[in-house]
Design a protein around this nucleic acid. Structure first.
Lengths: 190, 190
DNA sequence: TGACAAAACTAATTAGATTAGTTATTATAT
DNA sequence: ATATAATAACTAATCTAATTAGTTTTGTCA
């Protein structure tokens, strides 16, 4: 039994990869253990249960997506910042269908690992809003609108709701511009 | 063995109720059979598998939601029709968390039972769009935007992403009005 | 170097879906 | 009415995957 030198990080990476291959729903300890070259029960040295693992994966995904978005926003502002934030989120979700599924299912089972996970995204969006002249009372609503659109669109994409001819990407961009135009309207009216 | 006189309909109703209680994820044959006063294996006389049952539940949900929306739109038009369609969808999702989860997860596993299930909603939204002077090329994008918002918002609501102080409902209405305002802009510009 | 903690392992348990094989009930056709 | 066919239950058995128990190995650190 040569030790595999695992840690949470490596396990989450493997779990993420596996989830991306076969979906979070079908994520299972047998295949995960295989991928890590250990026996299934050994996973319990690192993880409390399969359910916890899914929660951890959710947190991991939000963390990673948050980092990428923050990274992409360096030195950018205004409409362009909103565009980038949305685009990076979308790309992350598209590249990581399984992890995104976990993210979307966030608090499905319980509030166990809520951890304020998606708050990073909300926080970023809030800053972007606050850098504008949107009426203060509107901001929370606008944030929820954005999150709904972002997660909803990605969800639908993954579930094959849109044709695979690439038009989804175009629709996504359209949606983002539509929302940005709405923000301009708020700024003018407010 | 007095016969329970079951049919797909009754089974789906029971499954829906159970899913609403414990979530689709935890939906299981044992409890379902219990609810129907039969033994678990007997369910296989009516259903191919648990996975198929979930798919069937998805279709059932879309069907039911579609009916309610169509019903609510009788004699209504313009902005008010959009408002109502959205509101009824939201109410359905809120009253039926488990079924909605199935609907959202639509083609998760395979395209097995796609059945054009959510097309009813899309079809209704399309008609509402076409009754307006939105540039034709924009219509498909607008539809996707609406669907993303509707399903995304309901998803987030269910997962406790929004506080339970009732402000979610307000945000939902806000979102709908925001989108309607955007449509007006399209009509003016187009 | 010896003891302790961590991380693997194998073997056993449990739970739940599914299949096999059987029996009872209903519907249908004479 | 009655025999027959189809349907829907049932019980018992199987299979798979998560989890727990108990043991051994490996690495760290006094």
């Amino acid at each position: 039994m040569p030790r595999a030198n695992l840690d949470k990080r490596k396990i989450l990476e493997a779990a993420g990869a596996l989830a991306n291959e076969i979906s979070v729903t079908r994520l299972n300890l047998k295949q995960l253990a295989q991928k890590l070259n250990i026996q299934p029960p050994s996973l319990y040295n690192h993880v409390q249960s399969l359910d916890h693992l899914r929660s951890d994966l959710m947190a991991y995904g939000w963390q990673q997506a948050g980092e990428r978005i923050a990274e992409a926003l360096i030195g950018v502002s205004g409409d362009e910042a909103i565009r980038r934030a949305c685009q990076v989120f979308y790309d992350y979700a598209e590249e990581n269908p399984g992890i995104f599924e976990a993210m979307a299912y966030c608090n499905r089972d319980s509030d166990r690992r809520k951890d304020g996970a998606p708050d990073r995204l909300t926080e970023i969006l809030r800053r972007l809003c606050e850098a504008r002249s949107i009426p203060e009372a509107d901001v929370p609503h606008v944030l929820r609108l954005f999150r709904s659109f972002l997660e909803g669109f990605a969800l639908l994409t993954h579930h094959g709701a849109f044709p695979k001819d690439g038009s989804a990407r175009e629709s996504f961009r359209y949606g983002v511009e539509f929302l940005i135009a709405g923000i301009h309207r708020l700024e003018e009216e407010g």
